[in-house]
Simulated scan of single mutants.
Amino acid sequence: MAAESFVERPSAPVGAGPGTTVPQSSPKPRESVAQRVIGLLRNGAVQTVLAIVALIWLTPTVGLFVSSLRASGEQENSGWWTALLHPGQLSFDNYTKLLGDSGMSRAFLNTVLISVPATVLVVVIAALAGYAFAWLKFPGRDWVFLLVVGMLVVPVQIGLLPVAKLFGTLGLFGSIPGVILFHVAYGLPFAVFLLRNYFAEIPAEMLEAARMDGGGDWLIFWRLILPMGRPAIASLAVFQFLWVWNDMLVSLIFADSASQPLTVALQSQVRQFGSNIDVLAPGAFLSLTVPLVVFFVFQRHLVEGVMAGSVK
C-alpha cells in the first residue's frame, strides 16, 4: 500500500466546488542593494549617528562663519567658540569691508566669469559628443572614443608648460578666456566618457521609434536624449562647476592680477598678510557659499545621476 502523504495542501475557499483552483501567492520580489541601503538609512539609530557625524563635519564651517563675523582684535585674544556666548561681538563689518575692496570684488566676479562659461561649454560639447559616440556611426568612432578616454590618465601638471607657451603665442596667456579654455580642454575627456556611457543605456527601440516618426538626429537629441539624460547632465554640471570654482593651480599660472579668481586673491592675502583673518575668513566663507548653494539646488538631480542604473 502506498504511503500516505502528510504534505499540507492549501485549503480551498469555503463554498468552493471540488474543481476550484486555489490561487497561489506570488513570491515577494527581491530588494536591490540600493533599496536595502535606503531602508537601513531610515533606521532611527542610524539617523542619529549620521546626524552626529554631520554636526562634526559642519563644525569647521560654523567656525569659519563665526570667525568671519568677528573683529581682528577679538580673533587674536580668544577662540571663535567664545563668540557664541557673546553674540554682541558678531557683525557683518568684515563682509562690508571685503565687498568694498575693489580687488576682492573683481576677483569674485572673475570667478563667476570663469566658472560659468567653463561649465556650460563642457556640458554642451560633452552632450553632443556623447550622443555622437553612443548612437551615430562614422569611421573611426571607437578609436576616437578610446583616444578621448586615454586623455583621462594625463595629469593636469603635464600640460601646464606646453599650454602656457601655446597661449603666450596666441595672446591668451594671463586672460580669462585662456583660463576657460584650459578648464574646458581638461574637463571634456571625463565629461564625454560619462555622458556617452549614460546615453548608450537608453533603449534603442525609443530612438528607432523616433526615427520612424520622422525625427532627425538633432530632434532626437533635443527632444529625447537631453530630457532622459538630465540626471547625468546635472551631475556633470555640478562636478565641473565645483572643480572650476575651487581651482587655484590653473588660475595661479594662467591668470594675471586683473583676471585672477577669488582663490588666487585669497592666497595672495595669505602671502602678504599672514594674520589678516578679518579678510581671509569672510573671503573663504563667501567662496564656500556659492558651491553649497549650487549643490543643494541640484541635489535631487545629483542623487538621481549617482543612483542611475543601481535600481533595476
Results as ranks from 00 to 15, higher is better:
154 V>K: 06
208 E>H: 10
172 L>M: 13
210 A>V: 08
189 P>F: 10
163 V>K: 11
166 L>T: 15
136 L>N: 01
146 L>K: 04
149 V>G: 01
161 L>I: 15
188 L>Q: 06
133 F>Y: 13
139 P>Y: 08
145 F>S: 01
147 L>F: 15
183 H>C: 05
202 I>G: 02
154 V>D: 01
182 F>K: 06
184 V>W: 05
145 F>R: 04
135 W>H: 12
136 L>W: 08
210 A>F: 05
186 Y>K: 11
142 D>L: 06
155 P>Y: 09
196 R>T: 14
160 L>G: 05
146 L>D: 04
155 P>C: 08
202 I>R: 03
180 I>H: 02
185 A>H: 04
145 F>D: 02
167 F>K: 11
156 V>A: 13
194 L>V: 09
154 V>L: 15
157 Q>P: 02
140 G>D: 06
146 L>A: 12
187 G>E: 05
210 A>D: 05
183 H>R: 09
186 Y>G: 12
163 V>T: 15
165 K>N: 14
162 P>F: 07
168 G>E: 11
185 A>F: 11
134 A>I: 00
133 F>M: 06
198 Y>E: 10
145 F>K: 03
136 L>C: 09
155 P>I: 06
146 L>Q: 11
141 R>A: 08
145 F>Q: 03
194 L>R: 00
144 V>Q: 13
150 G>E: 02
200 A>K: 12
201 E>P: 00
177 P>L: 11
165 K>Y: 14
170 L>A: 15
167 F>T: 11
188 L>F: 04
189 P>G: 09
148 V>E: 01
164 A>H: 14
170 L>W: 15
191 A>S: 11
157 Q>S: 14
170 L>S: 10
200 A>P: 01
157 Q>I: 12
153 V>A: 15
209 A>D: 05
176 I>M: 09
201 E>C: 00
154 V>W: 08
160 L>I: 15
133 F>K: 05
149 V>T: 09
196 R>V: 02
192 V>H: 04
176 I>S: 08
166 L>K: 05
200 A>D: 09
167 F>M: 14
150 G>S: 13
155 P>F: 09
184 V>D: 03
137 K>F: 10
195 L>G: 04
185 A>S: 13
135 W>C: 00
151 M>F: 13
148 V>G: 04
138 F>W: 14
134 A>Q: 01
200 A>W: 00
202 I>S: 01
206 M>T: 12
144 V>M: 15
141 R>C: 03
170 L>V: 14
201 E>A: 13
137 K>N: 13
186 Y>V: 10
205 E>F: 08
178 G>I: 12
142 D>P: 00
183 H>V: 07
171 G>D: 10
163 V>C: 02
134 A>Y: 00
173 F>M: 15
195 L>H: 03
175 S>M: 07
178 G>L: 11
153 V>E: 09
164 A>K: 14
172 L>P: 10
193 F>A: 12
139 P>T: 07
153 V>D: 05
195 L>R: 03
208 E>I: 09
207 L>T: 12
175 S>I: 08
168 G>N: 13
152 L>G: 14
149 V>S: 01
185 A>N: 05
199 F>T: 03
159 G>H: 04
155 P>R: 09
187 G>H: 08
191 A>E: 06
208 E>D: 14
